[in-house]
Design a protein around this nucleic acid. Structure first.
Lengths: 108, 108
DNA sequence: TTGACATATAACCATAAGGTGTTATATCAT
DNA sequence: ATGATATAACACCTTATGGTTATATGTCAA
């Protein structure tokens, strides 16, 4: 509750293909903005906006290091999507959701 | 209409809370449009648009029965989201993704 | 201190998204 | 046949989204 920061929805954040690609890139390695931007045909400013949305959803975090800003993945909010999805898994895969339930409740 | 069917992205389709609620409603039961619309404060026209987007993503399907159009859930496209997510599961739950891998490859 | 580099921000634009209301058409009950 | 019901099809409005360019600000290296 540090601020009124109108937190961006995770579902909205991952709705865009460019942002999903950013997440994939950062899942390999933390990277400065310039390096992220090199992977796309859009302008750096556009990339920065996507990074802002991902930051609002807390899917990525950035630290300043010298004149660079280095972003890294923070996958934790994705559990919200996973939980939402798990409800629907029963419709296409019963044994899997049963197993998941066992695993998630063993917690040793 | 084999040509330009302009299929809607599943990720975009589930990005909207109203549409996720529609999916939940249809996961309980198939329902006509009027019954779906009753659950929301928006106009029926707005609901119909959401239904169109969900239909484009093939997350729901409708059949005409008399003067009603009855929609039902088609959860299969959600597997795309699940697969995308499964890549990130390793970051918060290793044993789970290993188990999933075993289950998904046993297929007997 | 100058210049090159990395990022930030402001102003702007086109289009898509999400909503409204109205009208038209098909269907069912009487 | 008539009137009520269910949805489809429009036309329209407002805001969000994804992109652009241009102009700062801060940092390192020579």
């Amino acid at each position: 509750m540090s601020a009124s920061a109108e937190k961006h929805d995770v579902f909205k954040a991952i709705a865009d293909p460019t942002r999903r690609e950013v997440l994939r890139l950062l899942s390999e390695n933390e990277r400065p903005i310039s390096e992220i931007a090199d992977h796309f045909d859009i302008t750096r400013t556009a990339v920065t906006k996507h990074l802002q949305i991902l930051t609002d959803a807390e899917l990525i975090k950035g630290r300043k290091e010298g004149r660079e800003k280095i972003y890294h993945l923070n996958p934790e909010p994705l559990t919200e999507v996973q939980q939402w999805l798990s409800y629907y898994e029963k419709f296409w895969s019963n044994k899997l959701s049963i197993l998941k339930h066992i695993v998630e409740n063993s917690e040793d």
